[in-house]
Amino acid sequence: MIFIDTYISGVVIVEPTLHCDGRGYFFESYNQRDFAAHGIATDFVQDNQSQSVYGTIRGLHFQRGEHAQAKYIRVLSGRIRDVVVDLRPGSPSYGRHLTVDLSAENLRGLYIPPGFAHGFAVLSESAVISYKCDHFYCRAAEGGIRYDDPDLDIDWGVPSAAAVLSDKDRALPSFKEYQPCC
């Protein structure tokens, strides 16, 4: 695996090492020893999967306090723009965001440490996303920030007229209004 550190400390792009032959390819999508060797010693406890159609924007979501989650995101089919926003108080990148296009073609994964809001937009006709979490979901600890917050100014890769959102995500507070997650 190749680990690519980003400009936001702790957020890492993971590129697998492919083993190809006439049958196709094989790769390890996750290896705890390789992650630990890169300084990511995370014990994942829950795997989630979602399927969404073009234009769907899910997020920006996070879990507060002791329920804050590290995540490892992968795309099984299709293409998404993955977005993280640093919510770690005192972080030099607090309030900054990072976007990474993940797809079934580029096979990249994205590791997100605790203390981030996370979301994605579907750029293909549909997409299936798989992600690991290091803490179980807790409804009482959930929080979120509006996807179209003007202070964050995120390019989701989807025209706003084509955006498909849940009513819950449309009602999320702005970045200035949210309660700190950590």
Rank of each mutant, 00 (worst) to 15 (best):
G144N: 00
E66Y: 11
V11E: 04
I80Y: 08
F35N: 01
K176Y: 04
T42L: 07
G90L: 05
N106Q: 09
R23E: 01
V12M: 05
S9L: 08
C182T: 08
V83F: 05
A121K: 05
G157K: 08
G55F: 11
L172K: 04
D101T: 07
C181M: 12
P92T: 10
H61V: 01
S9F: 05
S91R: 00
Y25S: 13
I40E: 02
A36I: 03
K132A: 15
R23F: 09
A161C: 08
V75I: 09
F175P: 11
A36L: 02
I73G: 05
Q49N: 12
R64Q: 13
E28N: 14
A127P: 13
R81W: 12
G115T: 03
V53D: 06
A163L: 11
V14E: 07
L102M: 06
D153K: 13
L18Y: 08
C138Y: 15
G39S: 07
R96Q: 07
H61F: 03
R81G: 12
L102P: 04
R88F: 00
A127R: 09
H97N: 11
R170T: 06
P92L: 04
L165T: 13
P114Y: 06
A162V: 13
E105T: 14
Y131W: 05
S124A: 11
I112D: 00
L165N: 04
V84D: 00
I80F: 11
Y111I: 05
V85S: 02
V53F: 10
S126M: 05
I2A: 10
G10K: 09
H67S: 15
